[in-house]
């Protein structure tokens, strides 16, 4: 599944500008076939299912299918009050009657997993890294609102990873209240060691050397906090919660959930984010736990160059202040 953040490879220090194409373009391509589920699946159950399907699902590099399932998964949901309280208090938001954008993400995450856990999904769910995430919020989603989430996959492409090639995919989720589009997310995942021939190949992006901005804050990461985020988000990937599992995947220690780190950086901005915005996140080196990270909130006039515009907003950067390593490069562009 989504292993947020780093891999130990050269691309780690190169947040991919090629990832997470503009969220608003996503709605163009909803597959015609839609499978409606009774509810957003519980991520834990999806993991177990994936583990149960021995072989392919875990870390294999060869796959039976080489194209994305032409289906969207849909489910109704209401944002859970207690879970929102726990989420908000954990990441440093106020627990109000509307949800921060990252909470909508964790609330629909089970749909993404369910799609990636399907037999006709070409990439191994448990071998994927969350490399980028882009959320367009048209208005805050309210607790108790009846929402409908629809998730599909698109843009299966090859990209250079270290000396080899990996495969990257966007999972698009839109959340509507009635017919009204409220929230739209594009999560970009990379299967580092899955190679599929015949796909469009992205260029290796060029990245300027990371220069740390002036810190405006920071926080300590602990395994306890990772476990709390795993509980509230449902993302119980053991790479975040078990040292043994993390070592198995080649990390010195457990790593923080990428969306947890990103959400804390957004919380550092606070209510200045406003109600309507695009929140773009690129994950670079993973946050090793325990440790300390610095966050920098900078006001910018040109935060959304991806769509050619110059929107006002903020750059939100998270890095390792001792090693000068970038963890998260994100922007908040006001609508």
């Amino acid at each position: 599944m989504s292993r947020d953040g780093e891999w130990i490879g050269d691309w780690l220090d190169e947040p991919g500008a090629e990832t997470a194409e503009r969220a608003s373009a996503a709605s163009d391509a909803v597959p015609e076939r839609i499978e409606t589920l009774a509810a957003v699946p519980n991520p834990g159950a999806v993991y177990l299912g994936a583990l149960g399907r021995a072989g392919r699902a875990i870390v294999t590099t060869s796959s039976l299918t080489t194209s994305l399932p032409d289906v969207a998964l849909r489910a109704d949901l209401t944002l859970d009050r207690e879970r929102l309280d726990a989420y908000a208090h954990l990441v440093g938001e106020r627990a109000l009657d509307t949800a921060p954008p990252g909470f909508v993400h964790v609330s629909v995450f089970g749909l993404q997993l369910a799609l990636m856990g399907r037999g006709d999904f070409p990439l191994p769910m448990l071998g994927m890294v969350h490399v980028a995430n882009r959320i367009e919020q048209l208005r805050p989603a309210g607790v108790g609102e009846t929402l409908t989430a629809t998730t599909w996959a698109r843009r299966l492409v090859s990209r250079p990873v270290g000396d080899g090639m990996g495969t990257q995919v966007d999972l698009v989720t839109e959340v509507r209240a009635g017919g009204e589009l409220v929230w739209q997310g594009v999560s970009t995942y990379l299967a580092r060691s899955t190679q599929i021939s015949g796909l469009t190949v992205l260029d290796r992006p060029e990245h300027p050397e990371f220069v740390a901005p002036t810190p405006t804050g920071g926080w300590d990461t602990t395994l306890r906090l990772s476990k709390d985020y795993a509980a509230v988000s449902g993302d119980r990937n053991p790479i975040h919660t078990s040292r043994l599992a993390a070592r198995g995947f080649g990390y010195r220690s457990t790593i923080a959930h990428g969306m947890d780190t990103a959400a804390r950086a957004l919380a550092a901005l606070g209510p200045r984010r406003g109600d309507a915005f695009t929140w773009s996140v690129e994950f670079a080196a993973p946050v090793l736990v325990p440790g300390r990270v610095a966050v920098g909130v900078e006001r910018r006039d040109d935060v959304d160059p991806a769509d050619g515009g110059t929107r006002a907003g903020y750059a939100l950067t998270v890095w390792d202040p001792r090693r000068g390593r970038l963890h998260v490069a994100s922007t908040l562009a006001h609508a």
């Binding site: 309280d85 908000a88 627990a95 109000l96």
Partner: peptide, 14 residues
């Protein structure tokens, strides 16, 4: 029950 003093004070100010 799940709201802190800070949540409630923030919400009334808002």
């Amino acid at each position: 029950a799940g709201a802190s003093n800070l949540d409630m004070l923030t919400t009334v100010l808002d």
